[in-house]
């Protein structure tokens, strides 16, 4: 079967992939190194090693609160947005129905509207309806904007899957939920995981909507960082970014390594 494995290797593809991974991580390496800079700006040359910025972020309660807000909002928005997107993708993929273009345009709408316009529009709406501005209002707004981010990968995954499988499963299991969970879900899982990751980083990176739709105490990390421009962005932001990366990568790498050892 060695030969069959080789069929899959497009040599050029591997070279490009390695280059892309390098491309993705070069600035991250620079960013991490600079978090240990003794200088006072994240645009400055290297000015000696220091861990003082890690001390600064521990002391900075407002920044820590913004990190917590960001993670909380991103987690909820990812979950809600991905669930809604999965349902929608199940309805639109592999089929044609009247009004489909309109439905798909509507799902894509959050992607199309410039964020400043969407942000002010939603703020006006929330004020008008009387929804209190805070972390909850942020979760609502972010959930809307993560829908297309999760929808498109899941939809791409579903497209071209054999519809007979789901039907066979429906025959096999008495209720549709069981057939979905046992057959469809495992099949589209990579799509859902990818969509969820895009939704997560989409929410985590948003500035404009987070700024306008938040209330007192609900500032998120990107908003906090953008507001530093008056006196300059400090390596504290590099430090907090480094910690976030570390927190996200460590469990995964560990589980991967452990999984290998005990297999």
């Amino acid at each position: 079967m060695k030969g069959a494995g080789d069929l899959w290797r497009f040599r050029g593809a591997r070279a490009v992939a390695y280059a892309v991974l390098l491309y993705l991580y070069i600035p991250i390496i620079v960013l991490v190194i600079l978090s240990f800079s003794a200088g006072d700006s994240s645009l400055a040359r290297w000015e000696g090693f220091s861990t003082r910025w890690y001390g600064v972020i521990v002391e900075d309660g407002d920044m820590m609160r913004s990190v917590r807000n960001s993670l909380l909002v991103a987690l909820v928005a990812m979950t809600v947005g991905t669930a809604i997107a999965t349902m929608a993708a199940l309805a639109t993929a592999r089929t044609r129905f009247r009004g489909q273009s309109a439905v798909e345009a509507l799902i894509g709408l959050p992607l199309i509207v410039p964020d400043i316009v969407a942000a002010i529009a939603i703020l006006l709406f929330f004020v008008m309806v009387g929804i209190e501005l805070g972390v909850t209002s942020l979760m609502l707004a972010h959930s809307v904007f993560t829908i297309p981010l999760a929808y498109l990968p899941i939809r791409a995954r579903l497209e071209g899957l054999d519809p007979a499988l789901a039907e066979a499963a429906a025959d096999l299991y008495a209720n549709p939920w069981a057939s979905f969970r046992r057959v469809v879900l495992p099949l589209i899982w990579p799509g859902i995981a990818s969509g969820a990751m895009l939704a997560f980083i989409g929410s985590l990176g948003d500035v404009v909507i987070s700024y306008f739709v938040s209330g007192p105490g609900a500032t998120t990390l990107p908003v906090y960082v953008f507001s530093m421009v008056r006196v300059g962005v400090t390596p504290a932001v590099n430090a907090i970014s480094t910690l976030l990366i570390a927190a996200s990568v460590t469990p995964l790498v560990l589980s991967y390594l452990l999984g290998r050892r005990f297999r």
């Binding site: 991974l21 993705l24 991580y25 600035p27 991250i28 620079v30 960013l31 600079l34 994240s42 645009l43 990579p190 995981a193 990818s194 990751m197 895009l198 997560f200 980083i201 985590l204 990176g205 500035v207 990390l221 990107p222 960082v225 953008f226 962005v233 932001v237 590099n238 907090i240 970014s241 480094t242 976030l244 990366i245 996200s248 990568v249 995964l252 790498v253 991967y256 999984g259 290998r260």
Partner: peptide, 27 residues
Amino acid sequence: SRRTLLVFIVTVPFWTNLLVRNYAWIL
């Protein structure tokens, strides 16, 4: 077993802040 890890690896750089990521490019 490696694929899921790769999905993650591709998105992890974007857990960092947009502004300092751009600053890193400037540097």
